[in-house]
Each structure stands twice: as structure tokens, then as C-alpha cells.
């Protein structure tokens, strides 16, 4: 399983109801169903990924996340998961609020724009950072709402959400001792568990 999903699954209780926003090929939900008797649904809009999810026997619902989660009732899920997608939606603040309306807890991962490499790139070249990890040009990128760990936590405070867990990892989802000291500078990806 993808390294970040390996970390996330530990935060998902057995037998829970899960909504996976941007479920991709359905890997996480298929694994959770098999190993943790989780009943889940994934939202996805990419036709090929939807087809892969269908093949895995995962419940996949074709939907653009920018349309919000109005289709789902309050508290209808134990956990709402969103990996590497927060930065690509039009209204991350509204979506975050919605996630915690339909779910009791949320697990969110996103790339940290406050990472030293981004800062150094911008400082040295005066251009929007590009790397093999985030290779897009500013005008042609799905990532329209980059933020740093500090930004995200400020949004959580504003929405009166509690951060239950936070992991700052590198692009391969490994933990480092130094990252723990300066997460916003050294962490490339943030994995958050948030509740109301």
C-alpha cells in the first residue's frame, strides 16, 4: 500500500464508516474493507481511477469535490479521509467544514509549502517553486491553494477544530527526528487528524 495510506490506516478504527475524498484507485478502501471490516465510499472524478476502483469492488461515487458534500447527512461517517487533495479544491475552508459536518473525525494530508526547499527556491530564483515532487507551472497546475502547516493550523483554529494528531514527514512519508523539531521547515507532507 502507498506509504501515506499505511500511516493513515492506523488512525481508522476497525468496523468504522469511512468516506474517502479523492479515493484514486480505491487502494485504501479496499485494504480497510479486507483488514478492518470498514464500510466505505470513495468520491472520485477521474474516469480511469473510477474504473480501477470499480474493479477492486470499492464503492466509488463519481463526484467533483468542488460541489461540496451536500449529498451526505450530518455525522454519517466516522472518518472522512482526504489525501493530497486539499490544495486542489476551490474552497478548502468550506470543504474542511463540510468534512467535519458529515464525519466525526477527518484525516487530511497535504504538501507543505513552508518546506525549506520551497522557501529557498522562491528566495533564490524569485519564481514559484517547482520540483519533481510538485512539477507544475503556476499557470497550469491542479494545485491552486497551497498552504503551510502553520496556515492549515490557523484555519483549524478559525473553524474551532481540534488537531488530534499531526505528523510531518518527507515525500516518501518517512519520519525524521529533526522534522519533529521544525516541522514547518523540514516536513514535506503533513498528515493531520482533526475533530470538532
Amino acid at each position: 500500500m502507498r506509504a501515506d495510506l499505511e500511516i493513515i490506516q492506523e488512525w481508522i478504527p476497525a468496523g468504522s464508516r469511512v468516506l474517502d475524498l479523492g479515493c484514486g484507485n480505491g487502494e485504501l478502501l479496499a485494504w480497510l474493507r479486507e483488514h478492518k471490516q470498514v464500510h466505505g465510499y470513495g468520491l472520485e472524478r477521474d474516469p480511469d481511477k473510477i474504473a480501477q476502483s470499480l474493479e477492486r469492488g470499492v464503492n466509488v461515487i463519481e463526484q467533483d469535490l468542488d460541489l461540496g458534500l451536500d449529498h451526505f447527512g450530518d455525522d454519517s461517517f466516522d472518518v472522512v479521509v482526504m489525501t493530497q487533495t486539499l490544495q486542489a479544491v476551490h474552497y478548502p475552508d468550506r470543504l474542511l467544514r463540510d468534512m467535519l459536518r458529515v464525519g466525526k473525525t477527518c484525516i487530511i494530508t497535504f504538501p507543505n509549502f513552508g518546506h525549506w526547499r520551497c522557501r529557498w527556491y522562491l528566495l533564490r530564483r524569485g519564481e514559484m517553486p517547482r520540483s519533481d515532487f510538485l512539477p507544475y507551472t503556476w499557470y497550469n497546475t491542479p494545485n491552486i491553494h497551497f498552504c503551510t502547516f502553520r496556515d492549515f493550523e490557523a484555519l483549524c483554529r478559525e473553524q474551532q477544530l481540534r488537531v488530534l494528531d499531526r505528523l510531518a514527514v518527507d515525500r516518501d512519508h518517512r519520519l525524521h527526528a529533526l522534522t519533529r523539531l521544525w516541522p514547518n521547515l523540514l516536513g514535506e507532507i503533513g498528515i493531520y487528524r482533526v475533530t470538532r
Binding site: 464508516r17 465510499y41 476502483s53 470499480l54 464503492n59 466509488v60 461515487i61 449529498h71 454519517s76
Partner: peptide, 10 residues
């Protein structure tokens, strides 16, 4: 979904 059934939607 509200009735907790397995469903996929295209």
C-alpha cells in the same frame, strides 16, 4: 448511502 448499502455511481 444513507441506508448503508454498497453503491457505486457513474
Amino acid at each position: 448511502v444513507a441506508a448503508k448499502k454498497n453503491v457505486s455511481y457513474l
